[in-house]
């Protein structure tokens, strides 16, 4: 009988395990490096004024930099703009996305549902810059100006497939016994959906929504074509408006404001990470 070299095989096994572990650890490096970089550079910008005051003018910033002081003002205009546009986009994306997700989950074998599902996938894969330019043609041109409405439409289009998918997946994993038990009590379809299935799916849909928001909150390209940006805190939805990612781009392009890049980036990063972690935690709680 041929001799079997167990030691040799065990060594190879160990070597592979160490390699896989090392490579896995490497995947954490980019995030930690980004977080570290942004944290170190942006941390000292953080102050009360940074969140409550709008972007300073280039002249004010230049004077502060020349005097060796921190740039005054902050990113409140961007925060307000981001919240307004996200709010408006969610207002439409949530009901439409949830209803569409329910339809897809309930009628997965129908041809129409198959087509809608396919289109949803394509929409999810559409580059955001294209969504931006198309929204420009659809909304900015007829309205004769950039606006928060146009920005919301672009974000709405981006959020929609994410919410449809998460609702569909959540509804699909609900046990069919729930629906059958509801209908067996003589409930009509709409009532069974609204009183039994949707409440049971709430956790999953909420998690999906948080992830959708965290996914689009950092989008810059579509907002360049639609919301444009604005240096004051503005609540009008038919006027150009700012957003945090837009501000980062503006700061990058203005040598006087470059120090503000890091504070704005840190804010955006922390916001997105918090949303993601909350979503993950909720999903875990909901699944158990």
């Amino acid at each position: 009988m041929k001799k079997i070299y167990i030691k040799h095989r065990l060594l190879k096994d160990k070597l592979l395990f160490v390699m896989v572990s090392l490579l896995s650890a490497l995947t954490a490096v980019p995030l930690l490096a980004i977080l570290g970089e942004v944290l170190i550079k942006g941390y000292d910008q953080f102050s009360w004024a940074f969140f409550t005051e709008p972007t300073p003018t280039a002249y004010k910033a230049m004077k502060a930099v020349a005097a060796g002081e921190l740039i005054p003002g902050g990113i409140a205009n961007g925060i307000v703009g981001t919240l307004i546009m996200l709010g408006m986009a969610s207002l439409f994306a949530l009901p439409i996305g949830i209803m569409c997700g329910i339809y897809l989950a309930e009628n997965s074998k129908k041809k129409f549902a198959y087509i809608v599902s396919y289109i949803t996938d394509l929409l999810q894969g559409t580059p955001s810059v294209i969504i931006g330019i198309v929204t420009y043609i659809w909304v900015v041109v007829p309205m004769k100006g950039y606006s928060a409405i146009a920005g919301s439409v672009a974000l709405f289009i981006m959020m929609l497939p994410l919410i449809i998918r998460s609702t569909e997946e959540t509804m699909k994993i609900l046990p069919s016994s729930l629906k059958e038990a509801g209908l067996a009590l003589g409930g009509n379809y709409m009532r069974v959906v609204t009183k039994v299935q949707l409440p049971a799916a709430f956790g999953g849909i909420f998690t999906g929504t948080l992830l959708a928001i965290s996914r689009v909150i950092g989008e810059t390209a579509p907002l360049m074509f639609t919301a444009l940006g604005c240096s004051i805190i503005r609540w009008d939805i038919d006027k150009p408006i700012s957003a945090v990612p837009l501000l980062i781009w503006e700061f990058f392009n203005d040598p006087n404001l470059q120090d503000l890049i890091w504070g704005a980036s840190l804010f955006l990063l922390v916001f997105v990470l918090t949303l993601n972690l909350t979503a993950k935690k909720l999903a875990k709680k909901w699944n158990s």
Binding site: P175, L178, G187, V196, P199
Partner: peptide, 26 residues
């Protein structure tokens, strides 16, 4: 009426609401 193999109380409803679920759903 029907009772299924696996007990299927509605998970988001209380015991009280579960008994009344037939009325709510109708």
């Amino acid at each position: 009426g029907m009772v299924f193999q696996r007990p299927a109380p509605f998970p988001t409803m209380s015991i009280y609401e579960n008994v009344l679920a037939g009325f709510t759903l109708n």
